[in-house]
Nucleic acid binder design. Structure first.
Lengths: 162, 162
DNA sequence: CAGGAAGCGTCAACATGGCTGCCACATTTC
DNA sequence: GAAATGTGGCAGCCATGTTGACGCTTCCTG
């Protein structure tokens, strides 16, 4: 949260600055996600598989429902992805200890290895961008992106940071 | 370009900070793009149509080839999108005055109106995030995203700013 | 000025990853 | 015991990406 009070005519709120943000977000996001496509294709997986893999790595033993909430897709779409990941031996599920209806998801060693390899590609790109922009810029980067996420959603994201 | 020299152990380059960036980028991008889905669905269009619409609005009279370069999809995929936009009366093309092989793309008044309405939704979200984060943060946001784009690609993006 | 290269359009076929609707089952909670 | 919840599965649809091949028209160069 910055301490500045934006004036009514703040220059950084005008159309060119907004368009610049839209474009950089589009291109930046595109290039970052493309960084792992090759690694995924090797295993016959797609981006949907990676998103699931990523969040399971991030929060082991999360339930199918929690993952659905993060990905914001339908149960059916996720089901297909989880089935694939299971068949590839990358993800395994066990029954919830408290609520036996739940299935707790976890990466297998092979899954963890693949996720780490894919993350390495993301890390390379993003840390290069971080280093080039500097620490302060990184704080700004986070702050703006946080502002794009509806307040109701933020807790779920913050929870990923343990 | 920040003036800081990242030390070998810069805290903001460690895994948690990288993961935070990956996640915020994912969620921020998702929420921003979802902001216009309703408006698009009303017209029977999808996100692919919006991307084309957006860049044609941004750079009128751009050629099919230039648009292909920006979107980084195949000619066939773009062809389908442009055909749709033409049928809806949102985009029109005229023969290039210098090179008659080229088709210069332009929004019709209806196309400009739709693009403006969709942009308004993006503007609302992004300017709220800008205002909340403050002007300095916005600079950092841009700087990090620029670092994600391969150097070879940057000129094309900078060119959008006239 | 002939011939190759470039810009564009288009056909067919296919893959991925979303979606909806509907149903089934085990389990938990009221 | 009834209702709500968490999960799984089937069938089918749609949007948007892909490859490969081919054919125009136009431009440029030797």
């Amino acid at each position: 949260m910055a301490a500045t009070f934006p004036s009514a005519s703040a220059l950084f709120l005008r159309e060119p600055e907004i368009r610049r943000g839209v474009e950089l977000l589009y291109f930046g996001y595109s290039h970052l996600t493309r960084a792992i496509d090759a690694g995924l294709a090797e295993k016959g997986l797609g981006r949907a598989h990676h998103r699931a893999l990523y969040f399971i790595a991030r929060q082991p033993d999360l339930t199918v429902g929690q993952l659905l909430g993060l990905l914001a897709i339908t149960k059916q779409s996720l089901g297909r992805v989880l089935t694939d990941l299971g068949k590839h031996g990358l993800v395994e599920a066990r029954t919830g200890p408290n609520d036996r209806r739940q299935r707790l998801l976890r990466l297998t060693p092979a899954g963890a290895e693949l996720e780490a390899a894919l993350f390495e590609a993301l890390r390379e790109r993003l840390s290069a961008a971080y280093a080039k922009a500097g620490q302060e810029a990184v704080g700004g980067f986070w702050a703006v992106l946080e502002g794009l996420v509806p307040a109701a959603e933020l807790p779920r994201i913050e929870a990923l940071r343990r």
